[in-house]
Design a protein around this nucleic acid. Structure first.
Length: 942
DNA sequence: CTGACCGATAAATCTTTGGTGCCA
DNA sequence: GTGGCACCTTTGATTTATCGGTCA
């Protein structure tokens, strides 16, 4: 049996390899594959692993079974002894368990393989079909490894038990219980047990499973054709229940997976009508699930009731399909669910009993309830995705606001509009020419501006503007009220609808505003409004007035720019946006050339002019996030600090990363004009960077860009010096942020290409990761009374940390007598180019290591990075380091070698091409022969 | 109303050099 | 007999951030 097993698996492996290499599948090849030597070799290896040399090499079935039974019995005896004498036979324990498991697996394999062998040996005609099936399987595997693996696994499990006899099953149950006792004892989580428990076992299991997968895939094809559908269903039912009993200690997920596969199989076989019905139910359930979000409690009842009534009504005739409908829905979700590992093993037994009952009643609702509970838990916190989404919308909103500001600016620059505005302006304002404005100081300028503002108010009607203000304030209240109501709904419905409802609120009020406040000189204004249709669309009429005012100011000759306060959706979820009605609030600034200052102007509020920007803050709706200015040439600048005194107190927390803002401004909006042409002199008392405005709360100092408290110094940070104490908050000294500096381990700095100077003392200590892992393992070994490995060192518990100022450029060890210096791992660190020793060369070519070895040249593998692969830290080795003299020799050899390699590859390719053609021609010839002799056979033949 | 504080939870952070089986 | 490759599998403990609630 083992020989045959080996033969089959080996055959398949070879097949796989050949398919991958595009080899031919000729009969001669096959005979080579079934070479006895290789089989014998494989068996030999297994024997070694098993350490049951005397018992295995048998070809008779009966004998083998007997021997296996004896073996298991012996081991049981051993095991009982081991339990008594744990201290003495620690190492044996592992081995016996492993071998037992292997035997167990071997036994399982027997039955499906028997069938398989029959297929292959008896019907040679079917072989080709089987091969095709294989091709498909492997293609799929290559494409979608993981999914297939899972699928095959579960199919596998199902068939294992399916084909076994009852007696064997009983034995298995016993054995399984024994095997699974271990993880139960030491409450390890699954991952840990994978790593530390019995790694050997697990890897072997996997491999065995793989082999079985391949077998079973074949087996399935045969089964489907031969067996009756009803029988299968019955068997599946049985297996379902049996699996539940047997694998109670496995996680629930496996069960669901298996069922899913069973479902897939069965659904294929079921009638189409049933499928449609199932789909209907699915749809209904989906609807129910949508409702879940609103009222989860009601949903519970709904779903369970629906499940019971509908499924039972429709699917009374078919036994399993009820399970199908219920489980199918669940299984879809269970793919996404990753919390399944947290289920504790010990609690499952009680659950299983209930689920068993349910199974016997042909219901499996317990899992669905579990799922719902989990869903509730998941809904609790704010997800990372939610946060990301919020951040992205925040960003996009900023971008949209800024671009709309730029559009307004462009509109003001268009000649047509300028001419129109010019025709409106009175003469007494136009008399101020550019000279007047340029040479005038702030006082003179303010007079002119005030004149302009008054005219502006007259022109559009003071009353109108005032009423607009009133209306807007009332609108705020209304809208906020509405918003609150909406918000309540939104929370229940979904997060995404927020913007829509806001828009609705605005669109309702917008029309009224436009209708009620048609300005005196409608003819002229209508011209304004005709061209830029978007200004009509804009909800905030206040901003329209500002835009027009800026237009007038520019025509008169002022250097006038937009100031926009942006109110995007807040990043933080706890803070609710207050003024949703206003996305952008506009006012303007006028430049005083003489004093190099910007004067804040808002023609709509009674004091029109503010010489100091921060005084204007009162007029800004709270909370301030971003205040930007847009120059006539389109230059955008962030001016939040100037307007908001509390920028370093609270505002900075509301904003997105400053880096992103500056990057965005520089690379997107200010591409064409990189500098502010109108330079500004900010007096010291207004410069926010030079004023010390401390946050009032201790929490405000966390990650503050300018200040820091000692209590907030992080694990890998250090307070460099306690020298400049800027102030005190609740008796805690405030230090500048620049005093807080990062520290790191020696290894970290080496990867940066730095080494620690001699005599430097560590500033701080941190817990070593390696130590923790080793400690964990040691504890495990001690607990299980297992032998310690040789040279087991825990290492240092604490790792010293150094600052960057304690490091210098890495000086590589010199080459002595033509020998490359090597680390304790036998390679050389080459994280940065300057870490290469003098007189050495880094050769990064494929296969160059072999050449260096052949030539007996001293070399060192270059470690360019360290990666995490699986559970381990793995050095990334790329190329070798050799001395300059040797490099030339190697390279010259390498060239010839590479040419040779290319030639060989070419030869191989050509050979393959010819063989493929030969094969094709041969087959065509035989096909012709057959057609000549027998004519076309059935239509179905391909 | 603000802010300190706490607990719960999610996410970021730092860590820093396999073991085994199989095939050619 | 041995070198080389593939496979296993997304580490895990701790710190930090955030939210919501309570209380002064």
């Amino acid at each position: 049996m083992t020989r045959e097993l080996k033969r089959v698996t080996k055959d398949k492996l070879n097949l796989k390899r050949k398919l991958n290499n595009n080899y031919e599948l000729t009969t001669t090849d096959k005979s080579q594959n079934l070479n006895n030597d290789s089989i014998a070799f494989g068996v030999k290896r297994r024997r070694k692993e098993l350490e049951i040399k005397q018992l295995l090499p048998l070809e008779n079935k009966k004998n083998k079974y007997e021997i296996l039974k004896i073996e298991t019995q012996k081991e049981k005896d051993n095991n009982t002894n081991d339990d008594n004498n744990n201290n003495k036979n620690n190492n044996n324990n592992k081995k016996t368990k492993y071998s037992k498991r292997f035997l167990n697996k071997n036994k399982k394999d027997d039955s499906p393989i028997e069938e398989e062998i029959i297929i292959i040996d008896s019907e040679s005609d079917k072989e080709s079909d089987n091969i095709i099936e294989f091709e498909n399987v492997f293609e799929k595997k290559n494409k979608n490894k993981k999914r297939n693996r899972n699928k095959l696994k579960s199919e596998n499990e199902f068939i294992e038990i399916d084909s076994n006899e009852e007696e064997e099953e009983e034995e298995k149950e016993k054995e399984k219980e024994e095997i699974f006792e271990e993880p139960k004892k030491y409450n390890f989580r699954k991952r840990n047990s994978n790593v530390y428990n019995n790694k050997v076992n697990i890897t072997k299991e996997n491999q065995l499973k793989k082999n079985k997968n391949k077998n079973n895939k074949l087996n399935n094809v045969a089964n489907k054709t031969t067996n009756d559908i009803k029988e299968e269903k019955e068997e599946e039912e049985k297996t379902l229940i049996k699996n539940r009993k047997n694998e109670g200690k496995k996680s629930i997920r496996k069960n669901t997976k298996r069922k899913r596969n069973e479902i897939n199989e069965t659904t294929e076989k079921n009638n189409k009508n049933e499928k449609i019905e199932n789909k209907k139910i699915d749809k209904e359930k989906k609807k129910v699930k949508e409702n879940k979000i609103v009222e989860p409690e009601n949903e519970l009842n709904l779903s369970s009731e629906e499940d019971k009534t509908e499924t039972s009504n429709i699917l009374n005739d078919i036994n399993i399909s009820e399970n199908i409908t219920i489980e199918d829905n669940l299984s879809e979700d269970s793919e996404n669910d990753e919390d399944w590992e947290q289920i504790e093993i010990s609690e499952e037994k009680s659950e299983l009993s209930s689920s068993d009952k349910l199974l016997s009643d042909k219901r499996s609702i317990t899992i669905s309830f579990d799922k719902l509970e989990k869903k509730k838990q998941k809904k609790k916190g704010i997800n990372k995705q939610d946060r990301l989404l919020r951040k992205d919308t925040h960003k996009t909103q900023i971008l949209c606001f800024l671009s709309s500001c730029q559009i307004w600016n462009l509109w003001c620059c268009s000649n047509l509009i300028k001419n129109l505005a010019l025709s409106v302006l009175p003469e007494y304002l136009l008399k101020y020419n550019e000279k007047n404005i340029k040479s005038g100081n702030i006082k003179q300028l303010t007079e002119i501006i005030e004149e302009l503002c008054e005219w502006f108010n007259d022109f559009f009607g003071k009353e109108n503007i005032k009423e607009i203000m009133k209306l807007q304030t009332t609108n705020h209240n209304q809208s906020t009220n509405k918003k609150k109501k909406n918000n309540d709904k939104k929370v229940l419905d979904s997060k995404n609808n927020k913007n829509e409802s806001d828009d609705n609120v605005i669109s309702m009020d917008k029309k009224n505003i436009i209708k009620r406040f048609e300005v005196k000189n409608t003819k002229i204004l209508s011209l304004f409004f005709q061209k830029p249709y978007w200004i009509k669309e804009f909800e905030n009429s206040e901003n329209i007035y500002i835009i027009i005012f800026i237009l007038f100011a520019r025509i008169i000759g002022f250097q006038c720019r937009f100031v926009a306060s942006l109110y995007p959706i807040p990043i933080s979820f706890s803070k609710k946006k207050v003024n949703t009605n206003e996305a952008i609030k506009l006012w303007c600034e006028i430049y005083c050339n003489k004093e190099k200052k910007w004067i804040t102007v808002n023609p709509l509020y009674s004091p029109f002019i503010y010489t100091k920007a921060k005084n204007y803050k009162i007029k800004c709706p709270k909370p301030i996030n971003y205040i930007v200015t847009i120059n006539e040439d389109g230059f955008i600048k962030d001016r939040t600090k100037l307007y908001d005194k509390n920028f370093y107190l609270s505002t900075w927390k509301l904003r997105i990363e400053e880096e992103w803002i500056s990057d965005m401004l520089n690379n997107v909006f200010n591409k064409n004009c990189k500098d502010d042409k109108l330079k500004e002199i900010i007096p010291e008392d207004e410069d926010p960077d030079k004023q010390l405005v401390f946050p009032t709360s201790i929490g405000g100092f966390v990650n503050h860009p300018l200040y820091a408290l000692e209590r907030h110094v992080k694990q890998y940070e250090i307070l460099f010096s306690k020298e400049p104490i800027l102030g005190y908050i609740r008796n805690e000294p405030i230090y500048p942020r620049s005093n807080v500096r990062p520290v790191s381990t020696e290894g970290h700095w080496i990867r940066e290409g730095l080494q620690i100077k001699k005599g430097e003392k560590p500033l701080k200590y941190a817990k070593s990761k390696a130590y923790m892992i080793k400690q964990f393992r040691l504890d495990y070994l001690v607990k299980n009374n297992m032998a310690l490995p040789k040279d087991y060192e825990l290492g240092e518990e604490m790792v010293p940390l150094y600052g960057k100022w304690q490091t210098e450029l890495y000086v590589p060890a010199p080459i002595i007598d033509g020998k490359i210096p090597k680390s304790k791992y036998g390679n050389i660190d080459l994280f940065k180019p300057h870490m290469l020793p003098k007189g050495a060369v880094h050769l990064n070519y494929n296969g160059i290591i072999q050449i260096a070895k052949k030539l007996n040249i001293d070399y060192a593998e270059a470690v360019t990075d360290i990666d995490i692969a699986g559970h381990h830290y793995v050095p990334v080795i790329s190329g070798i380091v050799v001395t300059k003299e040797n490099a030339e020799i190697i390279l010259s050899k390498y060239n010839s070698f590479e040419k040779e390699r290319q030639r060989k590859l070419q030869e191989k390719k050509e050979r393959r091409i010819y063989s493929n053609w030969r094969r094709l021609i041969k087959k065509l010839v035989t096909r012709e022969h057959l057609i000549m002799k027998y004519g076309y056979g059935n239509k179905n033949t391909k």
